[in-house]
């Protein structure tokens, strides 16, 4: 096993899988996306060396592969895959309901808004960084984020007010 690939997996594998899982809403697809990234890195070892930010470069690869996969898959196949556990199971039972509600609300967002929200909230990227990863303008990234957050707030209002 290549030590370099193992080190890259240990550094970024978790983030890539979580991002791919949130985008594809499928464990199998998230694994396919991540595996394809590492196969490409293995075929072309200098690929990552040329990247200015390895994390952003890998997230871009994940996004493009996930979008390609999403387009290839029929809607019926995607729904047949069943729900995916995007968030870790909570230690406190009261939190379970909220996390499930967030997962359901996230799945109702368009893929491009979900990608921006994931990168902003769970990767803590700036809008400029998100724009670079998703190959769009920072203004578009910011507006997609605002639309997405507004929709999430609307969808989660009953649950969120309940736990406050």
């Amino acid at each position: 096993m290549s030590a370099d690939l193992a080190a890259i997996y240990d550094a970024y594998g978790g983030a890539l899988i979580a991002f791919a899982r949130n985008l594809t809403r499928s464990d199998a697809d998230a694994r396919d996306v991540t595996q394809e990234i590492f196969c490409r890195l293995a075929r072309n070892p200098v690929l990552l060396a040329e990247a200015r930010s390895p994390r952003a470069f890998l997230l871009t690869m994940a996004y493009r592969l996930a979008v390609d996969l999403h387009r290839r898959r029929a809607v019926r196949e995607r729904h047949a895959a069943g729900p995916v556990e995007v968030f870790a199971p909570p230690a406190h039972p009261d939190e379970t309901h909220f996390r499930q509600a967030v997962a359901v609300a996230m799945s109702e967002l368009p893929e491009e808004q979900r990608a921006v929200i994931h990168l902003k909230l769970w990767e803590a990227l700036t809008f400029e960084e998100i724009a670079a990863v998703l190959d769009l303008s920072a203004h578009t990234a910011a507006s997609r984020y605002r639309y997405g957050i507004d929709k999430l707030r609307t969808l989660l209002r009953p649950v969120y007010e309940e736990i406050l």
Binding site: M1, L5, Y9, A18, T34, A42, A88, P89
Partner: peptide, 20 residues
Amino acid sequence: LNPAPAGWREAILAAAEKET
């Protein structure tokens, strides 16, 4: 976020290793 399943690391790296 939910961490990756334990077996994925070895499986993904083994698949990548075949492509070197």
